[in-house]
């Protein structure tokens, strides 16, 4: 039955290829039971730069970001808007202390973040692609 074997094999290869595509790079995830399947680059920018409050579908977004190690966030913003963390903090200092918007919350390590995402409706989070597990769904990755 070589045909029935190849389908799971192909699937496994696809999954592996997908996993490799985000390995080591930051990705954006939502809870596994979220209705959001995919976010565009524009939506990710708007959600994490304080311009959009709701996820596609209308649920209030709760943007979260992996705090440790800092390199995950640093790499994410470099790829997303070509800014380093100091520039991102400066950007938010202006918006936040003028009372316009609130920055994404920092949520400890990847492990802490996965717990938060799983139990927070509307959570959308920046996380190290290597840490992704069954509790979350990748809705945005770079270069894809």
């Amino acid at each position: 039955m070589p045909r029935t074997l190849t389908i799971p094999l192909r699937l496994a290869a696809l999954l592996l290829a997908g996993a490799l595509a985000w390995a080591g790079e930051p990705v954006v995830v939502v809870g596994a039971d979220s209705r959001v399947e995919k976010l565009t680059r524009d939506e990710v920018i708007n959600l994490f730069m304080g311009r959009q409050k709701r996820l596609p579908g209308g649920v209030l977004a709760v943007p979260l970001q992996q705090a440790q190690p800092e390199t995950v966030r640093a790499r994410f913003y470099q790829l997303l808007v070509d800014k380093d963390l100091a520039e991102i903090n400066t950007y938010w200092a202006r918006l936040f202390f003028s009372g316009q918007a609130q920055p994404p919350e920092l949520a400890g390590s990847a492990k802490d973040l996965l717990k938060r995402v799983a139990r927070t409706p509307g959570a959308v989070a920046i996380i190290d692609g290597d840490a992704v597990d069954h509790r979350v769904r990748v809705v945005f990755m770079f270069g894809k």
Binding site: N89, T90, A93, R94, S98, G99, Q100
Partner: peptide
């Protein structure tokens, strides 16, 4: 966004964050 109360006066680019040195 509608805000009521005491709000910053952003007449010029940085006018409402002049106090926040870190932001410029």
């Amino acid at each position: 966004q509608v805000r009521a109360g005491r709000v910053g006066w952003d007449v010029f680019q940085l006018a409402d964050t002049r106090n926040v040195g870190y932001s410029y």
